[in-house]
Design a protein around this nucleic acid. Structure first.
Length: 212
DNA sequence: AACTCGGGGCA
DNA sequence: TGCCCAGAGTT
């Protein structure tokens, strides 16, 4: 990462251009139920949201609560979620998580990030998605796209995910956190790719620290 | 910091 | 075929 930093006006300009490009961008994982969002987000690791939605659409018809999930064996759940990939570990983690939710949290999803991160299969990114999306807590989930793009553009300046979160929360107006999170993901997937970034066609390249 | 898990979509 | 995918856990 470069050591340079953008000034406030440059940050404003970058955010303005991202908004212009991806205005209205939002998650394809739209679950208002905390438990369902938690499960969908665990499944979304290294998997497209579209496929997660295909799986959960059917799965949640049959199993809706942690207690109901515990009726399944690991092998049975594995069949349901197979197309999301990593299904052995995800199946094991999800059922163990459900066991903890039932035993320790009365079948509810805890609203504390540290408690969420103690659940198997739930890391900081998934915990942030849950607390920000359904519990209205201040957090920005930093996945690989958000991390890479925000540091390339200069909206963050760190090789550490926690620091990147802090930078983003500082540099982005609070009422834009959720939307900006998706701008960065969209830009990362379509233009600012990990391997072959499309810098030539990127309309932000004139102020991009990575491009310079 | 590097490695592993993984089926499915796409070039 | 090879590459990639809204991560997390282990060593």
């Amino acid at each position: 990462m470069k050591k340079e930093k953008l000034n406030k006006n440059e940050i404003k300009e970058v955010l303005s251009k991202l908004e212009e490009l991806y205005k209205g961008a939002k998650s394809e994982l739209e679950y208002e139920n905390p438990f369902q969002l938690l499960i969908a987000t665990i499944l979304a690791a290294q998997c497209t949201d579209k496929r997660v939605n295909q799986v959960t659409a059917k799965l949640f018809e049959h199993y809706q609560t942690p207690a109901e999930f515990l009726e399944l064996t690991e092998e049975e759940l594995g069949v349901w979620i197979k197309s999301c990939g990593f299904y052995n570990s995800k199946s094991r983690n999800i059922l163990e998580t459900c066991r903890i939710l039932v035993d320790k949290y009365n079948g509810e999803v805890p609203q504390v990030r540290e408690e969420l991160m103690e659940l198997p299969g739930v890391g900081r990114k998934t915990a942030n998605v849950v607390i920000s999306n359904v519990f209205s807590q201040p957090a920005i989930a930093v996945d690989t796209h958000v991390f890479r793009v925000s540091n390339r553009l200069g909206l963050a300046n760190s090789d550490d995910v926690f620091k990147t979160e802090e930078d983003l929360m500082k540099n982005i107006p609070k009422n834009k956190w959720s939307e900006a999170h998706h701008w960065l993901i969209y830009h990362g997937r379509r233009v600012c790719k990990a391997r072959k970034p499309q810098c030539e066609i990127c309309t932000l390249n004139d102020q991009c620290l990575y491009y310079k």
